[in-house]
Simulated scan of single mutants.
Amino acid sequence: MTPLPSSPASPLAPSHATAPLTATPGTPGTPGGAPEPSAAGPRHRPLPIAPAVLAALRGTDDAGRPAVPFADPEGGAPLRCCLRRSRPGESLALVSYAPLRRWAAERGAEPGAYDEQGPVYVHAAECGGPAGGQGYPFLRPGAVRVLRRYDARGRIAGGRLLELTDAPDGGLDAALDEAFEDPAVVLAHLRFAEFGCFQYEVRR
């Protein structure tokens, strides 16, 4: 999982991606402002953390710790509230989030030992969520992701490593189509392969 910040002066985990990203000043997106590739009209909807859950996490996170805001000195943190990367100077919080637990509470499911939590970056205050028309977030050709499948009980029903392609959707449409071909699969998580951190969920 993404290492926790060691001090207020260095709140970002080392390299939120697997390789440096080229910056273009003045444009929102990756460190320094370069936009990330995104797909127009993905076949599956990437879901940010729900507003009510975000409001709770900004108080006390899923590990029972208070959120501590900090000013992002570099930009590039993957924000699960609005599914984009942060810009330098934005006020963020690194909180512990239990995505399967939150989903199971909505559905009355019992994931049992499959429940887990980990660190995610969010804006320290309400941000309005993802921009309209946004495709799959955090795309970078060659980056490796984990696609994990869950059944209606919240139990792991399969998974795979996925190397993102240079297609506009990064190859995620086909990978998610494949995941949901199994009628038992109702939920999928995308995760960073390096640290195992949760990116977003997709529901049937």
Rank of each mutant, 00 (worst) to 15 (best):
V53Q: 14
A98G: 09
C81H: 03
Y121V: 03
S96W: 02
C127Y: 09
S96A: 11
I49T: 14
A93V: 12
P31I: 07
A104Q: 04
R80Y: 06
L12E: 11
G32W: 03
R107Q: 15
P25D: 04
Q134P: 00
A23C: 04
L4P: 02
V95S: 00
S7P: 00
Q134N: 04
G26L: 02
Q117E: 13
L12N: 13
V120H: 03
G89C: 13
Y136A: 06
P48Y: 03
L54R: 08
E116N: 12
P28G: 05
T22M: 04
A63T: 10
H16Q: 12
P11T: 10
R87A: 15
C127P: 08
T18S: 14
R65W: 09
T22Q: 06
C82I: 07
P51E: 11
P5N: 04
Q117S: 15
V122L: 14
F70R: 07
D62Q: 12
L54P: 03
H16Y: 14
P35M: 10
G108Q: 11
M1C: 01
P25F: 06
P35D: 09
G76I: 05
A131C: 04
V122S: 04
P69K: 13
P5I: 02
G129R: 02
A9K: 11
D72T: 06
G108S: 12
A98T: 01
P37W: 05
G132L: 12
A67N: 13
F70L: 11
